[in-house]
Simulated scan of single mutants.
Amino acid sequence: MNISLIIKKWKRPILIVLMISLIQVTVFLVFYLQQNKHLPEQFFQLARSLATAFTQTEVTDQEKVMSKTFTLFQGDHAAFDFNDLKEAILAAKKSPRTASIRLTKEDRTIWSNDDTKKESAAHPIVDAPYLSQLPELPRGCEVTTLAMLLQYNGFTVDKMTLAHEIVKDPTPLTYDSGHNMRWGNPYKGFVGDMYDAKKPGFGVFHKPIESLARKYAGQQVMNLTELDFSDITSIVEQGIPVWVIVTSTFTQDTSRSVKWQTADGPIQTTRNEHSVLLTGFDGTYVYFHDPLRPAEKSSRRAASTFEQGWNQMGRQAITIILQNEKIVDN
Rank of each mutant, 00 (worst) to 15 (best):
H206I: 11
E41D: 12
T319G: 06
I101C: 04
A263N: 10
D176T: 10
L149S: 03
I16H: 09
A303M: 09
T104S: 14
F229Q: 02
A163S: 09
T145G: 11
S275G: 08
Q56C: 11
T251C: 07
T249W: 01
L134P: 02
T251M: 07
E87M: 01
L149N: 05
T156R: 15
L103I: 15
K159I: 10
P170Q: 08
S67K: 14
P294Q: 13
I320C: 04
C141R: 06
G75R: 11
L15R: 09
V246W: 00
V328Q: 10
S67F: 09
D127H: 09
S275N: 06
S4P: 00
S95Y: 06
A99Y: 01
Q268N: 12
I235N: 01
Q42R: 08
E106N: 11
G314I: 05
L29W: 14
V276I: 14
F250Q: 00
T60K: 10
K326P: 02
I327G: 01
I321E: 04
K86P: 01
I3G: 03
F28G: 08
I20P: 00
S211N: 15
L137E: 00
M194H: 04
G283V: 08
T233V: 15
A91S: 15
E119F: 01
F288S: 00
W183G: 01
V246G: 02
V286G: 03
L39C: 09
T319P: 02
P138Q: 13
F306E: 02
V244L: 08
V25F: 11
D158S: 07
R139C: 05
E165I: 04
V157P: 03
S4I: 07
I110S: 02
V242C: 07
V242H: 05
F250N: 01
Y285C: 05
T254N: 11
G75N: 12
I3W: 11
R271Q: 11
I327W: 07
F54Q: 13
Y216T: 03
A88Y: 02
T69C: 05
P129G: 12
T116G: 03
T247C: 06
T57D: 03
L162Y: 04
K9E: 13
Y130G: 00
T262Q: 03
P172R: 08
D127N: 15
K199W: 07
M222R: 13
S248M: 06
K259W: 04
A91V: 10
E273W: 15
T26E: 08
I166W: 01
K188C: 11
A302N: 07
K93W: 05
P172L: 11
E165V: 01
L22V: 10
K86L: 06
H289P: 01
A53S: 14
F155V: 11
R256C: 02
P129N: 12
Q24K: 12
A128H: 08
I232Y: 00
I318R: 08
A295C: 04
P40M: 04
F190N: 02
I6K: 14
T254L: 12
L46P: 05
T145Q: 12
F288W: 09
W243F: 10
L39Y: 05
F288E: 02
L90C: 03
G140F: 08
L227N: 05
E165Y: 06
E237S: 12
V157G: 06
P266Y: 11
I320P: 03
K259S: 15
Q62N: 13
K199Y: 06
Y287I: 00
D114S: 07
W260F: 12
N2Q: 14
I320K: 03
L162M: 12
